[in-house]
């Protein structure tokens, strides 16, 4: 295989009447990596994925999947799997019938894996899909996504309604299966903390715009929160870009976007300042919201939890 991107989007824009769902999106995703597509509800994640899979339409821009426009191109489409969060199934279908259909269309379908997952999720396969609970419905999508082993697999908020145990099963199986069958995975989520460690690359979308497109590892430890006496904190942070500020009397807690050197850490200790890591979730939230209005960004942190 070449190093050509698995997914390439150029200048994608999409409007719904007065709402701008996507605004000049440019992306290049490499094959065989796990990507996180992060952002708040309504940020444009699902819209982007449906355009990338030829299911939806952009008003502007182009999509290339392994170098081809996927729209109406069966050879390219068949290399992708995208089960949307609100996926509709034929009314009279039972879960096992949906899997039977998926086995027809996805050439790499692994029946054993599907069976294992059905058992792990305790999915009642003989019940009609429309009678399944939200969590069981998510499980159907997760099972199709994993067992299809498509070269590019999109998971659209796959954990909705799943309890903590089931979510862990999904993450574990994803890592396990990815290790033995590498492929391009795009994991769309607004629960960043849960998926952070699985991601190799992070794409953050907010109000239809890409605001972060970086390696997960370069984001980790790339910001630090300095807490202590307000004057000393101000002195310490100097001109580093500030992500977030909190103050309580003479105490200040400021998150800055930088990787501190050993010497700087030592100096912080001498100044009596406390350093704490900023999680990927916090970093994403802070970066996406900017530093202008701290009040709303705090609300957004809650919204994203």
């Amino acid at each position: 295989m070449t190093n050509a991107p698995a997914i390439q989007a150029t200048n994608l824009s999409k409007n719904y009447k007065e709402l701008t769902a996507l605004d000049q999106v440019n992306l290049a995703l490499e094959p065989n990596r796990i990507y996180g597509l992060l952002g708040r509800n309504g940020a444009g994640k699902t819209t982007l994925m449906s355009i990338l899979t030829g299911q939806g339409f952009a008003n502007q821009g182009t999509v290339k999947i392994f170098g081809h426009n996927p729209y109406e191109h069966d050879a390219t489409l068949s290399r992708m799997c995208f089960i949307r969060e609100s996926q509709k199934y034929p009314d009279d279908f039972r879960a096992n019938q949906a899997f039977k259909a998926a086995a027809l269309f996805y050439e790499n379908w692994d029946e054993d894996l599907a069976r294992e997952l059905i058992e792990a999720f305790r999915l009642p396969v003989k019940r009609r899909i429309k009678k399944l609970s939200r969590g069981q419905l998510s499980a159907v999508g997760v099972i199709i996504g994993l067992a299809s082993r498509a070269e590019i697999t999109f998971f659209d908020e796959p954990y909705l309604g799943l309890d903590a145990v089931a979510r862990q099963i999904f993450y574990d199986r994803l890592v396990e299966d990815f290790a033995t069958h590498p492929r391009t995975i795009v994991l769309s989520s607004h629960l960043i903390d849960e998926v952070a460690n699985l991601l190799e690359h992070v794409v953050v979308i907010d109000a239809g715009k890409i605001v972060i497109d970086e390696e997960a590892e370069s984001l980790r430890g790339a910001a630090v929160t300095v807490t202590g006496n307000a004057e000393k904190v101000a002195e310490f942070i100097g001109s580093y870009p500030v992500l977030h500020r909190d103050a309580l009397g003479s105490l200040a807690s400021i998150s800055i976007r930088t990787r501190l050197s050993q010497a700087e850490r030592a100096r912080a200790a001498e100044l009596g300042l406390e350093l704490s890591p900023v999680s990927l979730q916090q970093l994403v939230v802070r970066s996406a919201m900017g530093t202008e209005d701290n009040d709303t960004s705090d609300v957004n942190v809650e919204a994203m939890k």
Binding site: L77, S78, R79, C81, F82, A101, L104, F105, Y106, I144
Partner: peptide, 12 residues
């Protein structure tokens, strides 16, 4: 009913 599902099955 089957059209949205067929899209999810990556059918043109």
């Amino acid at each position: 009913l089957t059209f949205p599902f067929s899209l999810a099955m990556s059918v043109s």
